[in-house]
């Protein structure tokens, strides 16, 4: 990432582009990776509402894949996921294994 000097920044460090944090990927922070087991998913979307990093993609009201560019691997989704008949739909595995 190219760092800017003070001369390149707008006066007062006003940020003119809302939501520009999307240009900063936090996925590299992850020590554990959540894995979605689709067959156990009941589409309750609890993982989506509880994720602090908006790292679960939902389209037309349906859960899709994890957004590994931003997921920090906290494991909240896995802990809160009810799954199907007690079978968890999210599992955490060690990153890089």
């Amino acid at each position: 990432m190219k760092q800017k000097g003070w001369k390149d920044l707008p006066p007062g460090s006003v940020v003119l582009e809302g939501g520009s944090a999307v240009n900063f990927k936090t996925g590299s922070w992850r020590a554990y990776r959540p894995i979605w087991n689709k067959e156990n998913c009941i589409q309750c979307l609890l993982c989506w509402i509880y994720c602090p990093d908006m790292a679960i993609k939902v389209k037309d009201g349906k859960r899709g894949e994890f957004d590994y560019d931003y997921c920090k691997g906290c494991g909240i989704c896995a802990l809160e996921c009810p799954g199907k008949k007690g079978k968890n739909a999210i599992e955490m595995i060690e990153e890089g294994k």
Partner: peptide
């Protein structure tokens, strides 16, 4: 989402939610 990913709160922090 009017609060986007890419923020730098700690992993698992309650505040962004």
């Amino acid at each position: 989402d009017r609060f986007t990913h890419g923020h730098r709160m700690c992993s698992g922090c309650g505040a962004p939610t």
